[in-house]
Computed example of a mutant assay.
Amino acid sequence: MSYSTQGRSPQEVYQNTQPHQPRPPVQFFNNGVLGIRLVDAIAGHVSGLHEAGTLAPLTGANRITCRINWPGYESWSDGLHVVDHNTQPYTLARLAQVIAKTIQKFCGDNAQVRTREPRADWAVNSIPFESLYLLEIRHVSSGSWQPVISRVL
């Protein structure tokens, strides 16, 4: 199977009215290709994840807000802890896992919600979760990050 950036979710980027200094996106390269399958991240199958054991570059954050603007659905967010029980920042692998679980929660919360999107190809209940990939997370406001999601085409 392969996917491409053409299969990216056409999410609107979250807009915040407060000024912030955006950080570079956190990208997830798996076996040399941008993107990790969500089900693999959730299961901890990250042997091919580049720099999986390095600390996630979320400088000083103990908690972040994950924002999803999936086309056809209400804007959705969830607060996430991004430090372990020893107050050490999560590794890139653990961050991928937590973000993937959050996307799974979003999909579950919206599985029975009728999409307002005229293009049904991004309706949550019509896309197998197994076909979704996490490419990166973007810093969209102070303390808020938005996942960039793709799917197998």
Rank of each mutant, 00 (worst) to 15 (best):
V39A: 12
V152A: 13
G72A: 00
I99L: 00
G53F: 12
I137E: 00
Q27S: 09
N110I: 05
G53W: 11
H85F: 15
Q21F: 14
W145S: 01
S150Y: 02
V98A: 05
Q146C: 00
R116V: 10
I36V: 11
R114K: 13
V83P: 04
L49E: 11
K101W: 10
H50R: 14
Y73L: 01
T115G: 03
G32T: 04
R63Q: 14
N30C: 06
R37F: 09
L58G: 01
L132S: 04
N69T: 03
E136M: 07
Y73W: 06
R151V: 06
H20F: 10
V46T: 15
F106K: 03
C66E: 03
V13Y: 07
H81N: 15
I42N: 02
A56E: 02
Y133L: 14
N125V: 07
N110H: 09
N86S: 10
V26K: 00
Q21I: 14
R63I: 13
Q11Y: 03
V113W: 03
H85P: 11
P147C: 00
R138V: 06
I137M: 01
H81P: 08
I137R: 00
Y14D: 08
P25S: 10
E51V: 15
V33E: 08
E51D: 15
P128L: 05
T91Y: 05
N69G: 04
K101D: 09
T102V: 00
W122F: 07
N31L: 08
G143F: 00
G72L: 02
L135K: 03
N69W: 03
P24L: 13
E51R: 15
Q88Y: 05
N86K: 14
L49I: 13
P22G: 09
L80E: 04
P22H: 05
H20C: 05
H45Q: 12
G72I: 03
Q11E: 02
W145K: 00
T54F: 11
Q27C: 09
T17R: 15
Y133S: 10
N110D: 06
T91D: 07
V13K: 13
A52R: 11
P147Q: 03
R114M: 08
H50G: 06
H85C: 12
S4P: 03
D84C: 08
G32D: 10
E117F: 11
G60V: 03
A43D: 13
P147D: 05
N125C: 07
R94E: 09
Q15N: 12
R116M: 10
E51K: 15
R151L: 07
E117T: 08
V33I: 13
V13T: 12
T115V: 00
I42W: 04
G48S: 06
F29H: 13
V140D: 01
Y90M: 02
I149T: 06
P19A: 07
W145F: 01
Q6T: 14
N16R: 09
G32P: 09
Q104T: 02
I137P: 01
S126C: 11
T87G: 14
H81F: 12
I68M: 03
F129K: 01
R119W: 10
Y133V: 13
